[in-house]
């Protein structure tokens, strides 16, 4: 099989990881053999996973030591429960003592796991604080978003706390999923079955145009790998420093301006019209063409 053809979107968490990092370099922490499963799912007679839906470990990436976590979207939508969340937080804690070149979070999650919602919500809050601690220690945290569940709920906030966010066009990023909004507010507010609309609201090209994703790549595992390697090289020379007052006042001004400029916007087309000369062609552009045009618009 030609490795170049492997879709990130279609692959399992383990497949993504094994193709992303240097061959054979992954050492897993709290592996499935340890059977650290969720007692809360068991109590509700729901299916279990021996890794509770997330792989955590150490690997090398182009020779650099990295710590990695990969959520499995096929298990409970990658949702965060007590064990799942504790594994990610433990990995971030480990980064403080082990000092890898970077931490990679392969996020594929709808957010909190409802079967253990309280534990999941607290866990995500702990992950948020841990991501900030790791960055404050000068270690970059990169979010990779290209799976079928995207990055939603609290994991959508975690993603935006990361140093960089790499997305594919198929990746989705947001807070409330379209299904939730449709259920509560009605189909006229958000038709979750209109796939093109969903992608224009939450997808990689929209997020990249707004600057929420910092890199847009093809839906191929090697493309994510190349992006991660380039980020590692960049941050080796310039480790992240926590945001200071001036930087955050700048973000405040930027978001205030965004809210004012797009005060009535309800469709990604309105954002693209503001950025691209040929806005109507954005959905059909290749990633390479999109990136070139975005660069020219900047």
């Amino acid at each position: 099989m030609n490795g170049l053809q492997i879709s990130y979107f279609e692959a399992s968490a383990r497949k993504r990881l094994s193709e992303l990092v240097d061959a054979g370099s992954l050492v897993e922490f709290c592996p499935p053999e340890m059977r650290q499963t969720s007692p809360h799912l068991a109590m509700l007679d729901a299916p279990l996973a021996f890794d509770d839906g997330v792989v955590t470990g150490r690997a090398s990436l182009s020779g650099h030591k990295v710590l990695v976590a990969a959520q499995e979207g096929r298990f409970n939508g990658g949702a965060v429960g007590e064990v799942h969340g504790a594994k990610i937080r433990g990995l971030l804690d480990r980064a403080l003592s082990e000092r890898p070149t970077a931490v990679l979070l392969l996020i594929d999650s709808g957010g909190v796991r409802l079967h253990e919602a309280n534990a999941g919500l607290i866990a995500i809050s702990e992950i948020m604080r841990a991501v900030l601690r790791v960055q404050a220690a000068g270690i970059p945290v990169f979010a990779l978003v290209g799976g079928s569940c995207g990055a939603f709920g609290g994991m959508g906030i975690v993603t935006r706390l990361c140093t960089e966010v790499v997305m594919s066009e198929q990746g989705r990023l947001g807070l409330s999923g379209p299904e939730v909004i449709e259920t509560v507010k009605g189909v006229e507010e958000f038709d979750s079955r209109d796939r093109a609309l969903v992608w224009r609201i939450t997808g990689g090209k929209l997020r990249r145009a707004l600057g929420e994703a910092t890199l847009l790549v093809d839906d191929l595992i090697p493309a994510f790998r190349t992006a991660a390697v380039s980020l590692i090289e960049r941050y080796r020379a310039h480790p992240p420093v926590p945001a200071d007052l001036d930087e955050l006042l700048g973000v405040q001004a930027e978001l205030t301006e965004r809210s004012a400029r797009f005060a009535a916007a309800r469709d990604g087309r309105e954002i693209w019209a503001n950025t691209f000369a040929e806005a109507s062609r954005v959905p059909e552009m290749t990633v390479a063409e999109f990136n070139i045009q975005l660069g020219e618009a900047a």
């Binding site: 948020m128 900030l132 939603f152 959508g156 906030i157 993603t159 935006r160 706390l161 990023l173 947001g174 807070l175 409330s176 379209p178 939730v180 909004i181 509560v184 507010k185 507010e189 958000f190 609201i201 939450t202 929209l206 997020r207 707004l210 929420e212 945001a243 955050l248 973000v251 405040q252 978001l255 965004r258 809210s259 797009f262 009535a264 916007a265 309800r266 469709d267 990604g268 954002i271």
Partner: peptide
């Protein structure tokens, strides 16, 4: 969080992340 297409379009998760920072 407010549930709306407009808020999602603008990236409400990013606004929340800004508060957190």
């Amino acid at each position: 969080q407010a549930l709306s297409r407009h808020e999602e379009l603008l990236g409400l998760n990013g606004y929340f992340a800004h508060i957190v920072r």
